[in-house]
Simulated assay, not measured.
Amino acid sequence: MPPRRIRTATTLALVAMAAGALVTPAVAGSAADRHFPTRQAIEAAVRDGAPGVVAEARDRNGRWSGTAGAGDLRSGRERSPRDRYRVGSITKTFVATVLLQLEAEGRLSLDDTVERWLPGTVHGNGHDGSRITLRQLLNHTSGISSYTRDGTFVEQVLRDGFFEHRYDTWTPRQLVDLALRHPPDFAPGTDWKYSNTNYVLAGMTVEKVTGHSYAEEIERRILRPLRLRATSVPGTDPRPPRPGSRAYSRLSDDPAASLHDVSAVNPSMAGAAGEMISDSADLQRFYRTLLKGGLLPPRQLKEMTTTVAMDPRRPGRRYGLGLMRLELSCGTAVWGHRGDVHGSSSQALTTRDALHSLAVNVNGDWSGGDLAVAEAEFCG
């Protein structure tokens, strides 16, 4: 959702360090030693320009968490392991899980067309919802353009127009209509391209099938049963997550652009594609439970983990149904998702056996570093 990620100059790193950047492992001794590379990686992210980082890992030996840098650049307050944050596109895994649960209940088929459930919604300018399946929405092979690439949306939400429009409410239909201004990226099923529009449509489908919003279904089917008390679907509520850190963005591709506090924003501009809030502990519990089969029957979990190539030039990255498979440099494969939204960059990953997991968040949407943290944690 945010502007293209850019490596920052050293100046912001100095600001963050002056604001009290430090690394604080949650536990000492052997756990700290085991996760020393991860601790180094989050510290390096701050040196490279991230305002602050929070990470938590779980393995056979227990839990480790660490923080680096500032949660508030103005006051110097540090990041906390208890921080809640906007998780962006990690929301997609929750939405996909609900649709797969509905399939398991016999209420829909992933081979149903979009037209069957949302008649007339995907139509015109080369689009035909009768040729696109729900499965193609979930694995990004629909060809529907992402509304986040529309010029009006970019200016009002991701650039200078943010300050005038940060509290605007966007309906799912408005977001879809922005995407339909543009021709399809390719014919359905012939290629792969990430599109936030796919998951806005998936959220609309959940509501059509159940009579309840996707937020209500996520709450009923996932959040309450797993007791994910730090996780929420905020709807149109612009208030920053609490407890949490401030969120920062440049609202520009220019690495020299001014830094802005974007903590408060109406999350309806992301909707079912990326509006959720969580923390590192909840994210790990969700993904570990999901991969262990605690949320889906075997057939649906197999469907979710059946992947397509994302980029032929990067064969180690594949996409399932709201779930990404990433092969790291050491050959370890991890499953999960990343999420980028105003002032927040997150990643939640677990091994397929769900015995080793990681969640990491940077409270800036330009600086990167979370992949390096994953490499450090799983490859060490």
Rank of each mutant, 00 (worst) to 15 (best):
P3R: 07
T10A: 15
A18Y: 08
A31H: 07
W64C: 07
T67E: 07
G69D: 08
L73C: 14
G76E: 00
I90A: 05
F94V: 11
T97D: 12
G106D: 08
G106T: 06
L110V: 10
W117V: 03
R135T: 10
S145W: 09
D150V: 09
T190Q: 15
D191E: 13
S195E: 15
T210L: 03
H212G: 05
Y214F: 10
E217I: 06
R221D: 06
R221I: 05
I222E: 13
R229I: 05
T231A: 06
V233I: 13
T236Y: 04
P240R: 01
G244I: 01
A247H: 00
S252G: 02
S252A: 01
D253Q: 07
D254I: 13
A257S: 09
A281D: 14
F286N: 06
T289K: 09
L291H: 02
P297C: 09
P312M: 10
R313V: 04
R314E: 12
R314K: 11
G316T: 03
Y319S: 08
S329I: 01
S329R: 12
C330L: 12
T332S: 05
W335I: 12
G336W: 14
T350Q: 14
L358Q: 12
V360A: 10
G368M: 11
E377Y: 11
G380Y: 05
